[in-house]
Amino acid sequence: MSNETKVGILAAAGIVLLVLGFNLLKGRSLFSNKKIIYAVYTQVNGLQPSNAVMVNGLTVGNVQSLEVMDQRAGRILVTLQISKKIEIPKNSVARISSDLLGTRKVEIDFGNTNEYLKNKDTIYADVAGSITDALKEQISPLVKKLEVTLGAVDTLLLTVNSLFDTTTKHNIRGTISGLNNTMSNLSVASRSLTGMLQEDGKIGSTFGNFESISANLKNNNDKISNILTNFDKASGTLANGTLDTAMNQLRFTVTRLNDMVTKLDSKDGSLGLLIHDKKVYNNLQASTSSLNKLLEDLRYNPWRYVHLSVFGRKNKVVPIPSDTAKYLQ
């Protein structure tokens, strides 16, 4: 056998061993009759080839490959290789999950139908939430409540800051100072009261005076009763006789006064005309003015009305002050 033949045989054997080793590392077996099941996911959550496929905690196969079914990776085809001889119901679900260390796996939850999946059938796919997702679901409401609480605390602090400004602090200090003064006054009053209580003589004499007054009232109870009886009789007499007469006279007087006021308010009588008729008032005013001028002229020019001239000399007419004032105006 030539060297070239030996090299070719070794190269072929190496290639076969390489293919077998690669498939073994990926969990594939070229010489075993294993069942292939497909599952279509929209999110594989970090699943990798050779990850375990488990049923009730038992590893029954592994993930053979993952392929993108469209350009946007909206659907991912996962090939599951089942090495155990088990029957999987058609309504089972292949759910992607992870352990505490973050290792991904595919868990198959068996259904309850009597029809089973065959080789290269498709199983229902689902993605279980991770521990991080569960923590996020638990923490998200707490974060929202914390945000609301912090907002309320912030509002409260702003309100407190607005309340306790310089003026408010000054007012509070003044109020506290006033309370201190009030407490001091109460302390002084309590000491004074204590001193009064300790002086037995004054308090005893005061209570003695009250006792003597009450004794006098008790001794003069009959006299007080007679006085009240006489007062009752006098008030009854006033109510039954004199008081009624006085009230009747007062009513009569008020009635007459109302009639007089009514007549004054009407235009029938002289006073009513004098009050309500403006012409009468103007005539009276003019008559009064003329009378005043006559008296004034009689005072300054009496010779007009009484002739007392001995020699026949004419007296000069003196203007009265009212006419002079009118001309000056």
Results as ranks from 00 to 15, higher is better:
S2D: 15
E4V: 06
I9G: 01
A13Y: 05
I15D: 07
L18N: 07
A39I: 01
Q43V: 02
N45E: 09
N45Y: 05
Q48R: 10
P49L: 00
S50C: 05
A52S: 14
M54C: 09
L58I: 11
L66G: 01
G74A: 12
R75L: 12
T79S: 06
L80Y: 02
L80R: 03
L80C: 02
I82D: 06
S83D: 11
K84S: 15
K84Q: 15
S92A: 14
V93I: 15
V93D: 06
R95F: 03
I96M: 05
S97K: 08
S98I: 02
D99Y: 01
L101C: 03
L101T: 13
L101N: 12
D109R: 11
G111F: 00
G111I: 05
L117G: 05
L117T: 00
K120Q: 11
K120W: 01
T122W: 04
T122K: 10
I123C: 02
I123D: 02
D126C: 05
V127W: 03
I131W: 03
S140C: 01
G151K: 10
V153K: 10
D154Q: 13
D154C: 02
T159A: 15
N161R: 14
F164W: 07
D165A: 01
T166C: 00
T167N: 15
K169L: 15
N171P: 00
G174D: 15
N180E: 14
T182L: 14
M183Q: 13
M183S: 12
M183T: 09
S184T: 14
V188H: 07
S190R: 14
S192P: 03
L197E: 09
L197K: 10
L197D: 09
L197R: 11
D200W: 00
S205L: 11
F207N: 05
F207R: 05
S214W: 07
S214D: 14
N216W: 10
K218E: 13
N219W: 00
N220W: 04
I224N: 10
L228H: 07
N230V: 11
F231S: 12
D232L: 08
S235A: 12
G236K: 11
T242S: 14
L243P: 00
D244L: 14
D244A: 13
M247W: 00
L257E: 12
M260Q: 09
V261L: 11
L264K: 05
K267H: 04
D268E: 13
G269Q: 05
L274T: 08
I275G: 00
K278V: 07
N282F: 07
N283W: 04
A286V: 10
S289L: 03
S289G: 08
L291E: 06
L291T: 07
K293M: 06
L295H: 00
L298H: 06
L298W: 04
L298D: 02
R299W: 06
N301T: 01
W303N: 10
W303M: 07
Y305P: 01
V306K: 09
V306P: 02
H307M: 07
V310F: 04
V317R: 13
I320Q: 12
I320N: 13
S322Y: 00
S322G: 01
D323H: 03
K326Q: 11
K326T: 09
K326W: 04
Q329W: 04
Q329H: 08
